[in-house]
């Protein structure tokens, strides 16, 4: 049935294949008729491709990487211990000793911001990851079963969606209280992740509905595979793109939510360093004397949120121009 020709030329060329991105141009001469010189776009490493096509997103990614490095290596990066109280240095203005000044307890603001990145990223990533993953699973399950199950799940999600993130989060925190696991308040993570879950479920369900109609899902059903197998082995891997996009986009919101909750006194509590916490409490009393106490944590929050939003948007455009949040 087959020949060597089939072996060597196994792949029929398909123009418009998604991996045909045109980026940087190099010069190559072709040997075929008519002999002309071509500017052939070169295939590059995907990361480099992303940098060239989405410069803003790359800038966002750079900020995220810097933040992550600071968070992971905080003890080495930070000039002081964020918890060391130094009454001699209370409310010191920015200087060579304390670049961003000190707070009302004489703690180094820069060090607290660097340690605060730990809290922000840990809570942000965990909340976004847990919320999105649960949401994605619910979305795929809802799409796969359809009918009454789908209707029921969607109405429950509607109810959850009708609460603003912060209101829902406050309620959950108020009900569950604190539960520290490895230094991270797991209940805080759940409180922030819960409002994100229905949004991800919606988007993933839409993609999954389209996939459910494809013949390879029918093929799996006719093979008599179990529902769980079809959902996790056949459908889930095919909704990874929208899922990834949602995860990154929601990290920003989660960081903001953590800061807001901490500001309101419902999230991270003293003396742990948290950006939101740095804005509240004593800072409110001293902001006229020592504006650096609130200006720099504020900038840190804004930059983190901005960086994640930029990166999330670019990733969305880059991975799949069809998906809009």
């Amino acid at each position: 049935m087959t020949t060597a020709a089939q072996k060597s030329r196994a792949v029929l060329f398909i123009i418009h294949h998604s991996s045909f991105r045109i980026d940087v141009i190099t010069t190559v001469s072709t040997a075929t008729s008519p002999s002309i010189t071509y500017k052939v776009p070169r295939r590059r490493h995907p990361l480099l491709q992303f940098v060239v096509q989405q410069p803003l997103g790359a800038a966002g990614l750079a900020v995220i990487v810097i933040m992550a490095v600071c968070a992971v290596f905080a003890p080495w990066v930070a000039p002081y211990d964020p918890l060391t109280v130094d009454y001699a240095m209370m409310l010191a203005a920015p200087s060579w000793e304390h670049w961003l000044g000190t707070d009302s307890f004489g703690r180094d603001v820069l060090s607290r911001i660097i340690y605060g990145a730990r809290t922000a990223l840990a809570v942000g990533f965990l909340a976004s990851f847990i919320g999105s993953t649960v949401g994605a699973i619910i979305g795929v399950v809802s799409a796969y079963f359809g009918g009454r199950i789908d209707l029921f799940i969607q109405r429950v999600l509607d109810v959850l969606l009708s609460f603003p993130i912060i209101v829902l989060a406050i309620t959950v925190v108020a009900v569950l209280g604190k539960n520290l696991v490895l230094g991270v308040d797991i209940n805080l993570v759940i409180a922030i992740g819960l409002p994100m879950m229905p949004k991800v479920a919606r988007v993933v369900r839409a993609s999954a509905l389209a996939i459910r109609e494809l013949p390879y899902i029918d093929a799996a059903r006719t093979a008599g595979f179990s529902d769980a197998r079809i959902i996790f082995r056949h459908m889930a891997p095919n909704v990874v793109a929208p899922y990834l996009i949602m995860v990154t986009a929601f990290v920003a919101q989660a960081i903001l939510a953590e800061a807001s909750l901490s500001f309101l006194g419902l999230g991270v509590t003293e003396p742990t360093a948290s950006w939101g916490l740095m804005l509240s409490g004593a800072a409110a009393d001293f902001y006229q004397q020592a504006p650096w106490m609130i200006v720099f944590p504020g900038i840190a929050i804004s930059m983190a949120v901005f960086a994640f939003n930029l990166f999330g948007d670019s990733l969305r455009d880059w991975l799949d121009p069809k998906i809009k949040l």
Partner: peptide
């Protein structure tokens, strides 16, 4: 008529003479 498509995988000579 010669038509070429320039792609990241190389030049596709879609129509050759």
């Amino acid at each position: 008529l010669h038509v070429h498509f320039v792609t990241t995988r190389g030049v596709v000579r879609a129509v050759e003479g």
